[in-house]
Every structure is written in C-alpha cells, then in structure tokens.
Amino acid sequence: MPEGHSVHRIARQFARHFVDAGPVAVSSPQGRFAADARLVDGHAMTQARAVGKQMFLEFDNGLWLRVHLGMYGAWDFAGDITVDDTTASAGGRMGQTNQRGTVVGATGTGERGVSAHARRDTVVGAHEDSVWSIGAPRRTRIRMAESERLEPEITEWPPEPIGQVRARLLTASAVADLRGPTVCEVIDAAAVARVIAALGPDPLVDRGRAAEQRFVDAVRAKSTPIGLLLMDQSVVSGIGNVYRAELLFRARQSPFTPGRLVPEDVVGALWRDWAKLLRIGVETGQMLTMDGLRGEARRRALAHRDDRHWVYHRTGEPCRVCGTPIAMQVAAGRKLYWCPSCQA
C-alpha cells in the first residue's frame, strides 16, 4: 500500500501539471466512475492536496475528487510531464509497494523545491527535471504509486487507456489514468472536511506543537499496542508497514507496548521522527530510514531496499546494531518486523 510520501508526491504532480492548466476532461474508460466523472468534467482543477494516504483534487465548481489508492491503486501520468531520479530509475510508476530503487543522476541535475503548494513550474524532489530536457523533445508516461516507473514514450495523443482505467483526467498537455483504487468519488467541500477531520495529523499538513500534542494524546489514551496505533490512520496519517517498523526501531521502542504506557517523550519523538522521514521520502521518492549515509553508501541505499532499512523485510538477518536476528510476526494482517534485543 502506498505510504504518505507517495501520495504527497502524486499530489505534487497534479499541482505541477493540472492545477490552473485549463479545463480538465474527466472520464471513466472502465465505466465504474462515469456518473461522478460527469460532475467535474470540463472544469478547471484549482487545488491538489494530500493528507496521509488520501488525495483531494478541487475543481472550480466547488467539487472535489477524493482518491485512496488502497493496496493496489496507481496513477499513470503521460504527456509533457516531470520526472526525477526515482521516477526515471523505476521507469515512472507512482503507487505500489516494493518500490524499485533510485539511481542518482538518472535524469541529470535539476533544482529542488520545498512547498507542497509550489507553482506548476517548480521542480520538486531530488534532481527532478522536465523530460523535454532529456535528449530530444518527447512525451512520456510514468506510473506513480508506492513505486514509480518510467514507461515507453508515447507516439499518439492522447494515448489510448491501458487496462481497467477507473478515471482519466486529461488536459491539452497531460493525462492521468487511475487504476485499482479503494476509493474514487466526487464529493463536496463539507464531505472533504468530514473525511479530513476523521484522520490523524499529517506532519506536512498539520505543523507545530499542537499537531504533535494531538498525536501524543491519541496514543497515550489507548491500550492498543503502539505497533498497531502507528498504522491507525485516525491516530496519525500516512504511516504504513515500512515506516511503522523503521520508526519503532529508530526509537528502540517495542511494538507491543500499549500506547498508554509509552513514555510521553518517546511518543513525541516518534512524531518528530515521522515528520523527518516523511520529508525525506517526498524529496527522494524512497523510504530512506537510515541516517548518516554518504557517498556510495547513500547511493546503494537509494538504489536497493536491502541497503536502506534497519529491520523492515529483514526477517532472520542480523540486526545492524546488535547482531540479534530480526523477528517478524503477523499483527492485524500485516507483517511486523523488530529487533528482540534493541526493542526489548
């Protein structure tokens, strides 16, 4: 399932290439979204927002497209679009888990942006660049979910939909196709507010001490193990299986401790660390959770999952700190990884 950094990156693609880009033709090649598509078809997109694992696209008639990718959803972008090293290395997909690695320099060097509400021509991420500056002018296709994969150049415009496309958003120069989402619906502003109100805080949306305290209070009010609370989107937005395991290891915190028994300072530190890792994820396109990597070590970590995590997906391998074999068990239907010694 895409974690929070991926959804923020997808929202930024919409901000760059669809917001203020004129009328958007909205359709449903598959047919399941046809009625809702007609509600926003032909209207201009005015805002793209991500909150945790959910994305909201606003149109000039006051309606919003809400998308939750779930376990298998992904967006395919095509046209005059922007790619970064992660996208180029993975061939352009933005969505699914087990993301391919990033080869630094795959696109050449571009500038980096920082604002989630950056102008459409701002390039956001590590070494992002327009595909028009990579060799001959061309139009390309990328897929975005947990992983990002660049696909072959397109030779006709607009390209024919491939597979079961739930929703297609088309402008004069860019197209986005959505497949396999858990949620895809058009709602009004009041419904958007209700959805967001039910979500826990997102460090890229909810900033400052109040957001941290909201998270701390939610955790310490519950007897549920902290390893499950971090996956509860009503407690904190955007954390999935990878970040859950890595955050708890970085805090040397047992995943089985009830939330109410985790010291307040530890819970606050988890929030601040999540804010840090989320920003790194949005910038690099990878769930890079090991600090202090330089040179070749950082290049390996960006390129290979086995070199970028402390405990995730390392069952039976020696802990990088103490040598104890990493443990795994299924908790609430998801694999939970931890070090029995460091996180005792």
Rank of each mutant, 00 (worst) to 15 (best):
M1H: 08
S6L: 01
S6F: 01
H8I: 13
H8M: 09
R9K: 10
A15G: 14
R16L: 08
H17V: 08
F18P: 03
S27G: 10
S28M: 07
D36S: 13
D41N: 15
M45E: 06
T46D: 03
V51Y: 02
K53R: 14
G62Y: 03
W64F: 14
R66C: 10
G79T: 07
T82P: 00
D84H: 04
S89C: 07
A90L: 13
R93E: 12
R93T: 12
G95Y: 01
G101A: 09
E111Y: 06
V114C: 09
A118H: 13
R119K: 14
D121H: 12
T122G: 01
G125H: 02
A136Q: 14
I142P: 00
M144S: 14
A145P: 00
E148W: 03
E151W: 09
I154F: 02
I162P: 00
V165M: 07
R166N: 06
R166V: 15
A167M: 10
L169Q: 08
T171G: 11
A176D: 02
A176F: 03
P181D: 10
T182F: 00
A189D: 14
A190F: 01
A193V: 07
P201D: 08
P203I: 03
L204K: 06
V205S: 06
R207K: 15
G208D: 05
A218N: 07
V219S: 03
R220V: 07
P225Y: 09
I226Q: 02
G227C: 05
I239Y: 01
Y243Q: 04
A251K: 03
S254N: 04
L261R: 12
D265A: 15
A269C: 03
R272Q: 15
A275P: 05
L277Q: 06
G281K: 05
M287A: 15
L288M: 09
R294Q: 14
A297Q: 14
R298I: 06
R300V: 02
R300M: 11
T315F: 02
P318S: 10
G323K: 10
M328Y: 02
M328H: 11
V330Y: 00
A331P: 00
L336W: 00
P340T: 10
P340F: 05
C342Y: 02
